[in-house]
Design a binder for these strands. Sequence first.
RNA 1: CCAGAUUAUUGGCUAAUCGCGUGAGCUUCGGCCUACGAGGAAAGUCCGGGCAGCAUAGGGACGGGCAGUCGCUAACGGCGACCGGGGGCGACCCUAGGGAAAGUGCCACAGAAACAAAACCGCCAGCUUGCUGGUAAGGGUGAAAAGAGUGAGGUAAAAGCUCACAACGCUCUACGGUGACGUAGAGAGUCGGUAAACCCUGCCUGCUGCAAGGAGAUGGAUUCUCUCGAGCCUAAAGCUCGAAGCAUCCCGCUGAGGAUUCAUCACAAGAACCGCUCGAGCCUGCGAGCAAUCGUAGGCCUAGAUAGAUGAUUAGCAGUCCUUGGACUACAGAACCCGGCUUACAGAUAAUCUGGCACC
RNA 2: GGGCGAGUGGCGGAAUUGGUAUACGCGACGGACUUAAAAUCCGUUGACUGUAAUGGUCUUGAGGGUUCAAGUCCCUCCUCGCCCA
Length: 112
Amino acid sequence: MLRRLYRFHGYGSLNKVYRSGATLRGGSLSLKYGGRKPGTGYRVAVVVSKKVHKSAVVRNRIRRRIFEAIRHYAQDQTLASDLVFTVFDDRVAAMPSDQLTADVARLLEKAH
RNA sequence: CCAGAUUAUUGGCUAAUCGCGUGAGCUUCGGCCUACGAGGAAAGUCCGGGCAGCAUAGGGACGGGCAGUCGCUAACGGCGACCGGGGGCGACCCUAGGGAAAGUGCCACAGAAACAAAACCGCCAGCUUGCUGGUAAGGGUGAAAAGAGUGAGGUAAAAGCUCACAACGCUCUACGGUGACGUAGAGAGUCGGUAAACCCUGCCUGCUGCAAGGAGAUGGAUUCUCUCGAGCCUAAAGCUCGAAGCAUCCCGCUGAGGAUUCAUCACAAGAACCGCUCGAGCCUGCGAGCAAUCGUAGGCCUAGAUAGAUGAUUAGCAGUCCUUGGACUACAGAACCCGGCUUACAGAUAAUCUGGCACC
RNA sequence: GGGCGAGUGGCGGAAUUGGUAUACGCGACGGACUUAAAAUCCGUUGACUGUAAUGGUCUUGAGGGUUCAAGUCCCUCCUCGCCCA
């Protein structure tokens, strides 16, 4: 899990990314990223709808694994954008962590 | 040992590295350090309360809920014990279980007849030979056809029509029990089912919900809104009544709300907050009680997030599945808090009891 | 978090106070018309299972209950949808 500083708070800023952000598609998840002024850091949200999986435990695991992959990526690279990951497949809960980290890193690379 | 019954507990473990939230401490304000951090169902939202607002929520109507008895409880549609009924060889389990002679509705099809009484077939008698009368024991219809078995008497043929014994529910009396009810005796036995149909009886019940609500209190001034209508009056002013609010209606109660500003008291930067976690709280012992539960003594503080922390990876062990070797770790994620109910749940453990077999 | 509603053939959609479940439309199948097809007309059509023949059993999201009888009444669960800052 990322620190509170790097997460979204409230609907307004999230809706702004949904309206004006650009979209990248991956295997099981997509990324919307949007304009933030340079030098102001980054914010991340992960959206896992109830249609992905009925169990709240599985949805929580998906969310935490993606946050963890982003955290490892942010240790080496610098991020500067609003990032919204949307999951549409429950394979994310069971796939090996190396593959998940690579998928997330590929999306983040494209966004820059 | 095998097959069961009931109840309770547990719900992968250890280590390393990297992280997140809250509180305390330190700080050179960059951080550092330390403690704690999902459940028995956190779930479904099916009930009941606390708490908050609407009048310190008051009476009645309407509506809704519950239903054996006695207890427990803050309360309950929950729990415990007992009674009646049903199931099991048994341990034990299941049970929405008030009232149908207060009234109303419904009982399709079939059937002669469906809640008010009845003759279709059969049996018996009479004569006009296909009608009349007698007969509710038998047949047939149906979920249900006047409570009723065996034997004897009785008759034209029959029938609780009469008698003996047995069964059934009802009423009364006696005894036992706080009570539901049980046991015994006596009496009279034509007179459905359905109340998870309306209804009657008894008891309970205001509405909205933390997305509630708060974010100064008291007093005064000005102004606006609800605000308009009717009556008294020539008109104005004034008075009275109604309308307004109390989230269904009547009674009853009250004028209510917003903005600006002044004074006094209080508060001290916070809407990124409070409510928010110390509570019908948990653990242990003792006592009362068959038990639910209650009393008492000692000890303990045990998540409080807010697009939402409680995690990720690696190694070893334990277990399960299939073929070396891999895969997997029951059900499942707090959202104001409690008491229950219901539903989901791999495996492991413990206690008590029942039936059967073998041995001593 | 809190509050509501719905579920009937392959699809849509009826079924009055409990009383023959699936009326009606679409679709599908067979036949007629045609050289062939479309349109039109006629007929069949829930599932399973028989017999020489008439048939029998099950079915309203799932399970249970009340009743002679349940799509309808009551309870528990499942799925889908809607509303509230």
